[in-house]
Amino acid sequence: MTIDIAGFDTDAFVAATLAEDLGEAGDITSAAVIPADAMFDGVMDSRDAIVVAGLPLAEAFFRALDPDVAIERLVADGDRVAAGTDILHLRGRARALLTAERSALNTVQHLSGIATLTRAYVDAIAGTGAILLDTRKTIPGLRLIEKYATRMGGATNHRMGLWDAAMIKDNHVAVAGGVAEAARRAAAAGIASIIVEVDRIDQIEPALAAGATHLLLDNMAPPTLRAAVTLVGGRVPTEASGGVRLDTIRAIAESGVTYISVGRLTQSAPAADIGLDLAPR
């Protein structure tokens, strides 16, 4: 079972994660304590109200060690579930399933935590017309699945990497010698999507004149954002960014910006409380 993420190698991820946990000696606890022919009938459940993400990866971990395991997904990725909800049922060889348990749970807990936090931000701006974006503030090696989790929570992916759009930020501007010069060089290089970060209203017109196709309005208060949106007048999309919190995002969205990017979706999301227990009989 693979997860539908372009460019993500589920088999390689599962193999590397299990290898990290097993080391050279393997699961010495399960080998010593559990008979080789023992079966395990278990239920994965959420102890909190969450948005689920990562169940296909959990399934991949279990199938990697027990290809004959019977698995029933009781909910789907992207579903919002109440505390106490059973989300996955599995039955198979006990040694294999308990060896895979922590890797499967770690993954689903992490991705569901991201999806749950993302949904809270999406709900906070409902009806404003603003679109929530994630960022590149991801754990190295996990970007594709973390950005998958933000999609499950209702966000839209921003840049996947350094390759799919130019984003001219303050350090680029400082080295290039100004907003306009940096944008001009990107346009001259033939880059189609040029995102330019501005932190002052007076940088907007020079950035647009030099070829910006998207403006990132950095750390601006809502009144300043409204003025910036009015000045831009729909010529390019506008994006509010910097220090956005759950208690401030509504006011930011009501400024009229096209997008709001939030790094803490992937950078600071707490893991969801999800467990795997022997199924009740």
Rank of each mutant, 00 (worst) to 15 (best):
A279L: 06
D48I: 03
P140T: 10
R143K: 13
G7A: 07
V14L: 09
I249T: 08
A188D: 15
F8H: 14
I195W: 08
T116R: 15
A212L: 01
A31E: 15
H89G: 11
L208Q: 07
L97N: 12
R250Y: 04
I34Y: 07
I260R: 07
V196W: 03
H214Y: 11
L117H: 10
V232N: 01
S241E: 14
A83W: 10
D218H: 09
A53K: 14
L265E: 04
T118L: 06
R185A: 14
T230N: 04
D11K: 14
R63W: 05
V175R: 11
G26F: 07
H110A: 09
L231N: 02
L208D: 01
V257W: 02
A58S: 13
H172A: 02
I114G: 01
N171G: 05
M167I: 11
L88K: 12
L65P: 01
V51I: 09
R250V: 06
A25E: 10
K137G: 01
R151F: 00
A279P: 00
G84E: 09
T248A: 07
D123Y: 06
V14I: 15
M44P: 00
G141T: 11
E101S: 04
A272Y: 04
D79Y: 09
A228C: 07
M220S: 07
L231W: 04
P56G: 06
I50Y: 03
L65N: 11
E24C: 01
I139S: 12
G242K: 09
T128L: 06
G178Y: 05
I191F: 00
A82F: 03
G129Y: 07
I34V: 14
L88E: 03
L265A: 04
A96I: 08
H214R: 10
T2C: 02
W163H: 13
D37F: 05
G263W: 04
A76Q: 13
D202N: 13
I194H: 01
A189C: 03
S241N: 12
D21V: 05
L22V: 04
L265M: 06
T29G: 06
G190W: 02
A272T: 11
I139M: 13
R91L: 02
N106R: 10
A149R: 15
L142Q: 12
A176M: 09
T85E: 06
N171M: 05
G129N: 12
A166F: 03
A76I: 02
A70T: 12
L216C: 05
T116L: 08
V69I: 09
